[in-house]
Design a binder for these strands. Sequence first.
DNA 1: CCGTTCTCGGACACCTGTGTCAACGTTGCG
DNA 2: CGCAACGTTGACACAGGTGTCCGAGAACGG
Lengths: 197, 197
Amino acid sequence: MQTLGTTGAAGAKRADARKNIAAIIEAATASLARDPNVSVNDIAKAAGVGRVTLYGHFDSRAALIREVVDRAIHDTDAELNGLDLEGDPRDALARLLEATWRLTHRYGSLIVAAEAALAPEDIHDAHVQPMTRMRGLIERGQASGAFRSDLPIAWLVEVAHSTVHGAADALHRGDITEAQAPTLITETVLAVLTPSH
Amino acid sequence: MQTLGTTGAAGAKRADARKNIAAIIEAATASLARDPNVSVNDIAKAAGVGRVTLYGHFDSRAALIREVVDRAIHDTDAELNGLDLEGDPRDALARLLEATWRLTHRYGSLIVAAEAALAPEDIHDAHVQPMTRMRGLIERGQASGAFRSDLPIAWLVEVAHSTVHGAADALHRGDITEAQAPTLITETVLAVLTPSH
DNA sequence: CCGTTCTCGGACACCTGTGTCAACGTTGCG
DNA sequence: CGCAACGTTGACACAGGTGTCCGAGAACGG
């Protein structure tokens, strides 16, 4: 058992087993996105299987979260790598922000769950990966004079992320609608990044 | 026992009892600001008393948190009410942001603890109170033309808060220093609020 | 100085969540 | 078919946190 590790390669398992594994991962992703402290029991119930069945496929709660996070990182990378980050930095940033928002909205508080359950080393990648992408784009915009350079680059990246995060909170609270979120985020971040004159 | 409820009025108690209560509240505030999931045991140890002594003064973990939160709200209100919010809206906003930052930094993740332990009704006040202050100031600035009016007011308030929150994260991560935080926050929020032309 | 008040520590019951086991179904393949 | 391999299940053991009770002892305040 436990033939699938962090690689996630489901080999020659029985058909129903593979179906259950998929259901568990899907349910875990959705549940953890909502509440980072969901119990394994709730995740199993959401997947339509028994709790012990889940333990038959994943060694521990941490192993399950690791698998979910790995998939999230993989999907995120795939989605973000398919993005066109060339051209006008402002337009590129808008595209990157829109994608980041979509992913944040999908995975929600998964990162919180990961931080609580996984070792710091495992978290590092999840944070650094999208960070450097945003950072690189902002640096390119600074070099071309499209973005302001009088604030620390790390801070500008942080602003982009907190704005996206804040939009998620505001949406959850009902202050804004899902439709207007991307516009508000882009408008806001660009307002910060635009040089005074 | 338990003569102090949410009012927090310590009456004619014994001197050491009052001292211990104060130590407990102080330790709980500091502990919860760091980790919203601290156990009652750890809080008691941090206060230098036994766990049972703590239960002698507070009916439950929730009651303790409620007391801590009430004090935090009270102190916050006092500090914010002492602020001069008149004059140039930009300067007033800078003052309000600076105070908000200081308080956020002091109380840290206390709100998270409150959200997990208290009923939604009890949380409402903690959120709404500082919200309306910021909102009123922004509205005044909008009326005088100092701030942009093309974005929803609720979103602008959210931006101010997520920027402060983001600064706390960046500081915790070591991306910025405590000294530059107020400047960065003010600079950023003003960049968003300043009309395009 | 003495009674009241408070602290302290251990022990207990209870709850929730995690992880494991052996027995019970079910699937898949010859 | 039929059997062996595998997945699934309820039941069990364990750990950590909360809240309570008790008795012994210390400190306060009159």
